[in-house]
Each structure stands twice: as C-alpha cells, then as structure tokens.
C-alpha cells in the first residue's frame, strides 16, 4: 500500500500520455461519425453527434491540462451550453416531424431531392 498522495487533477490527467487522449477522442469521434452514417433513427443520429462533441470536449480538456491553459476548459463549457441549445431545437424539430409523419426515420425524409 503506498501512501495516498494528494494529486491535482491536471497532474492526474497528465499521468496518461497525451497521445492516448488523442487516440481515444479520435476513436470516440469516429464512432460518432459511424453512428451518424449507419443509423436511420433521427434521435440516435443526434446522439451520435453528441458523442462527437464529447470527443471534442475530452480532447480539449486533455490539451488544456497539458498546457495548463484554462481557455480549453472554457471552450468546453461553451460547447456544452451550445449543445444544450442545439438539443432543445433539434428535439423540437424531431417532435414536429413525428407529429407530421408519425415516424422519425430519416430514410423517409427524401421528398426534397435532385
């Protein structure tokens, strides 16, 4: 048992090499993209996009910690706030569509084309 050492969160974060964060968040981001690509349900697509945003957040926090620069974390708050606003509008749109066509399958929405 090692004595529990008081570690600051940035230090904790820095215990993992930066590249790992990069890889993980990129993986998360790509998973989000794949989700957008493969799903037809509007809500799940939307969730995948949120996943992409969170990948960005993770990355920003990692960079922020490594650089000891608070701007990155500020940005994360902005992203979260804006994402919330986006969710509000996005869900409203999805609801509106559901009211009209009784479905939220984006595959059905292809009246506008060519």
């Amino acid at each position: 048992m090692q004595p529990t050492q008081q570690v600051s969160i940035p230090e904790l974060i820095q215990q993992v090499p930066l590249n790992y964060y990069l890889i993980v968040s990129t993986a998360l981001f790509v998973i989000g993209i794949i989700g957008v690509l493969t799903r037809r349900n509007a809500i799940i697509i939307f969730m995948s996009i949120e996943l992409m945003l969170n990948a960005v957040n993770l990355l920003l926090i990692a960079f922020s910690s490594y650089r000891s620069d608070s701007a990155g974390q500020v940005f994360v708050f902005f992203i979260m706030a804006v994402a919330a606003a986006e969710v509000a509008v996005g869900l409203a749109i999805i609801v509106m569509i559901y009211r009209n066509i009784r479905s939220i399958d984006v595959g059905l929405l292809n009246k506008l084309k060519w």
């Binding site: 690509l37 929405l109 292809n110 009246k111 084309k113």
Partner: peptide, 17 residues
C-alpha cells in the same frame, strides 16, 4: 450530376465523410 442529390441524409453524410 443532379442525381447525386438523392435526398437521403445518410448519403449526404456519407458523401461528406
């Protein structure tokens, strides 16, 4: 060319990616 504009979100996103 206009047929590329298939109307499907899935395709559009795919095209972007």
């Amino acid at each position: 060319l206009r047929l590329l504009q298939s109307g499907s979100i899935g395709f559009y996103v795919f095209a972007m990616v």
